[in-house]
Design a protein around this nucleic acid. Structure first.
Lengths: 164, 164
DNA sequence: GGATGTTACGGTCTCCGTAACTATG
DNA sequence: CATAGTTACGGAGACCGTAACATCC
């Protein structure tokens, strides 16, 4: 299966967000023509129309909506890959735990203590964040784990066990 | 920040799996020199050594291990993006539910009935698979949802609600 | 006629393969 | 001296920007 390049996904996601080739090209720091060609090539390679070029701008097809979602996820994964790889090489090398600001500090304390008691426990850095922010932090690699409530819609990745 | 191209990740993952530039190049259908250069460039761009070139082959650094894992995830995401986008455009457009072979048929029946009763319910295609296979199917887009037991280590993505 | 997206064309830069080089056991 | 990885070098292809074109209000 032909793989999508991250450059192409970045282009498509920008166009899909702006719904306007001109503004998208500006955001990307490039001219419209190569952007237009890249999208056409993407549609040809997938064999699927992604945009409807109407009078007055652009609309996403159903397939385009799906690629917008999946493309964002892929770009986040690439960003996370770079970030976590760099972090793995840095001496600090702490596990980043995303905790929303209003969380139960009692529970957090217990968790961290229990984790610290385990053998070979990694050092944990607590990253306080807004309420809806945890998923994003996990997706793009700024965090490695998060404290969430079940049911959680879309657990993205978990990189280490905090408690057994 | 998002500097990693899919091509580079494919190269690195192959080398990391083979731990041998020659065999990796062969698997990739290319010559060793451009592969060697691509990896060097990747290390330069990340500012992190990924491989230790020892006498007698190659070893992964800690950062290399992380990039192997994250790179696979990114490549899977790209594959899933292409697959789901193509599927979204096909007329059938069914939701694929991965169910491991030994699963409870009674429960499955109830779930499917409950789902079918919802308004605007998508048609569901049940994909029977082996026991450890569900995560992989979700990751690379061959399935959109899966029936799993909690605790589930690494929920990757959920694309539609089957039951409320 | 102005705004928006698409071809046309030419230059540049990247990527690849062959061949020569280095290092190690 | 055989094996594995890296430079050196030249060519083919990809990508981009400018300019000209098509279409729709």
């Amino acid at each position: 299966m032909d793989l999508l390049e991250t450059r192409e996904l970045r282009y498509f996601v920008t166009v899909a967000e702006e719904l306007h080739f001109g503004r998208a090209a500006e955001r990307l720091g490039m001219a419209q023509p190569p952007l237009s060609r890249a999208i056409q090539q993407l549609e040809r390679r997938l064999g699927v129309p992604l945009l409807e070029r109407n009078r007055r701008g652009v609309t996403l097809t159903r397939a385009g909506e799906v690629l917008l979602h999946e493309g964002r996820a892929t770009l986040d994964a690439a960003t996370a890959a770079a970030r976590r790889t760099r972090r793995a090489a840095s001496p600090g090398n702490r596990l980043v735990l995303a905790v929303k600001s209003g969380a139960d500090h009692e529970l957090l304390r217990k968790l961290l203590d229990a984790h610290a008691a385990e053998p070979d426990a990694a050092e944990v850095e607590v990253l306080l964040c807004g309420i809806g922010e945890q998923e994003r932090l996990l997706r793009d690699g700024r965090a490695d784990a998060a404290l969430v409530h079940l049911p959680f819609d879309c657990l993205v990745a978990r990189h280490a066990t905090l408690v057994g």
